[in-house]
Nucleic acid binder design. Structure first.
Lengths: 216, 216
DNA sequence: CGTTAGCTTGAGGTGCATCAAGGGACGTGG
DNA sequence: CCACGTCCCTTGATGCACCTCAAGCTAACG
């Protein structure tokens, strides 16, 4: 369950990038979720659409034996919860202390322009899923980690120091690898002078062109 | 380029399943494509929406060195070409002799109800992409092939004999495997009594419950 | 009957997983 | 302030699932 409640007026400004500006006029209240708290579960009715204000969210599916595939990370400015026809196909959880703004799906669907924004957002989501398909189906561990880092850098403003909100386990479950392989690959990239692992959650990109090269 | 032209009135009835019934009222002509002919290329403007009448289509992305990931197969009744915001992110090709009905995107977007159908179709596409992400990221070769076969059986009416329109190479590029692994896996499944490879393009499912089990 | 394209099968190699141990950061209690 | 546990990450040793390379098989077609 969500923790404390915040009035929408209290919120800070979300990071400004193209996607973030294409926002919905959210009405209602923003709420905070603690680390690993569920936002909605696979199978639940799809009634609310969320926007990340602070923090980060993971969306994943599970196999019966517990294997997990993260299909998407949502960062400040991103909308999520649109992916469903009626019931959610993924579970979503806050990765860290996270604030989300939300709107009833029904209220948004009434407005013509909002509907257009939602479907554009769903198409963007599909494009990202197809990117990840290429990564999981055809790229090596080195290439996967490079894709992940470059994508994250692009989405968080393009600075050279990446602040990772997610753990190695999250990255592994996103890239179809194990934590050991993710860790070893980062060490390998550091050895090659591509980046510097300043600490586990802070990575400085040193030779970005070489990393981009690895993504083809 | 498309081969011969057909008047729409000449077309046979497309296979009847729930998805197929949710059709657009296509105006214009249906055309045929030969084996391996391109329908549209990655990067091309997204102007036309297609529906498979006969045959099958693959949609894929390539890496610079030629590695290919097929992100979707389209079968009779399926719509495609909606996935793009402005430019196509995938290339599509006819897998075999294929007939497609088409409509201008602009003409469909004008109609309120058609727009809704398109966005539902895009969401279905997203769900399928997420399924495939789970498969590529977290399933073994045996589980991947089982998922593929069960999915195909479900989509083609549920009969026990599957007529595969696609080659082993296509299946491999869809499942993130090599042709040798696909072939060996099918042989292994046959040895276990799960199915019978009647010939390369014809597979009889013998123990469907066991195959479903493999998909979790 | 030869040619070709696609599929199957075998032998061996390798990239990543698994198993295992150790290190660093952080919090908690003495 | 330090001892101790916990969580997360890193590193090492080993194993195996799938890839690579290679050869043979089958069917379609001239």
């Amino acid at each position: 369950m969500p923790a404390r409640l915040l009035a929408v007026g209290d919120l800070g400004v979300s990071p400004s990038d193209a996607a973030a500006r294409d926002t919905l006029a959210f009405i209602g209240i923003a709420r905070s979720w603690g680390r690993d708290q569920e936002v909605f579960a696979e199978g639940a009715a799809c009634e609310t659409i969320y926007k990340v204000v602070y923090g980060a969210v993971r969306a994943f599916r599970l196999l019966a034996d517990g294997r997990r595939q993260i299909v998407s990370f949502y960062l400040p400015g991103d909308l999520f919860g649109i992916e469903a026809l009626s019931a959610h196909a993924v579970t979503t959880e806050a990765i860290c202390e996270t604030t989300l703004a939300s709107a009833r799906r029904s209220s948004l669907i009434e407005d013509e322009e909002q509907r257009g924004r939602l479907s554009r957002c769903a198409l963007r989501e599909l494009l990202r899923a197809q990117d990840l398909l290429l990564t999981l189906g055809r790229r090596s561990a080195l290439e996967r980690v490079a894709s992940f880092l470059i994508d994250l850098a692009d989405r968080t403003g393009g600075g050279d120091v990446l602040a990772l909100p997610m753990s190695r386990q999250d990255i592994a479950d996103y890239l179809g690898l194990t934590i050991e392989t993710v860790s070893r690959t980062l060490s390998e990239m550091q050895a090659r002078g591509l980046l510097r692992v300043q600490d586990a959650r802070q990575i400085r990109l040193l030779r970005r062109a070489a990393l981009v090269q690895l993504c083809q």
